[in-house]
Amino acid sequence: MTANATPVARAAAPVASPEKKKQSRHLGTHFFLTVICITWLFPLVWAVYTAFRPYSETGANPRGYFSVGGAYNFDNFLKAWKDAELFQHFLDTLIVAIPAIILILFFASMIAFAVSRYSFRFNIALLMLFTAGNLLPQQVVITPLYRMYLALPMVSPISDNGMWYDQFFGLIMIHLAFQLGFCTFVLSNYFKQVPREINEAAVVDGASVWRTYWSVLLPLARPALAALATLEFTWIYNDFFWGILLLTKGWKFPVTSALNNLSGQFFTDYNLLAAGSLIVALPTLIVYLVLQKQFVAGLTLGSTKG
């Protein structure tokens, strides 16, 4: 635990530790971290290895999964893509995620703007309600929500069966309801950092509340919105629970929920299962690796800037 001294503290310490000792300590730390990282990567690496090998060489032979050699190819990926109709399910994910993210950010920024710029009597109450709602386990609401979704009517272009149940729309709405709290918090903290003067200048110019929000504050929040959009995309993409409960038509399942809906073959052919899982995991991994900054920014927004 002594290895935990921060470099800053160490550097600032009047008595600098001997160079050698310091290095050897770092070595130990690197060793520890390397071991942990290898352990962490292993399940993914194993999945990749399994996915590249044909079932005939692994599943049907003794200790086949543990063997080396033989064919390595993309067959499992192609088969998973085709058999599981993954293209359709990726499309389903986008049909849900894109409107949901836009609506979430739109509504959250409105509330955030209102509560950070104007005082209402129930500002705090509202924030408490949102936060509490956001923390609630989804399963607390699912039973009545399920019945509500079956009972609530919806007009035809939005719903193809007149209900909220089994509709992309219904899925979008529940994501919206649940995610609002988080985004509202982040954005209201963000808005609070924007100098009042900007706001006031707009008011002096005679801008309405709406214009102040839409043309002045919202553009300023672009970095925050980008970070939140990245995070929200991952979360909605990864949703499993709402998908399996609020949908029934096989083709409508967003890709993460669809994985559970695959044919039984996937559950005996582990090579195929590995390939399917990796295909589904890939987009979030790419988003994370490419937009890592946005990602971490989203999580730490406000916390570093106070």
């Binding site: 999964y65 499993f240 582990y270 589904v280 994370y288």
Partner: peptide, 28 residues
Amino acid sequence: SVLYMPVVLSLAIVGFIWQLIYAPGSGF
């Protein structure tokens, strides 16, 4: 980056990936 990577995966995917580790006959 490495340690954070699993966090971007859905827990459902985590379940599938770890089944490859735990499965009775074929697991690692």
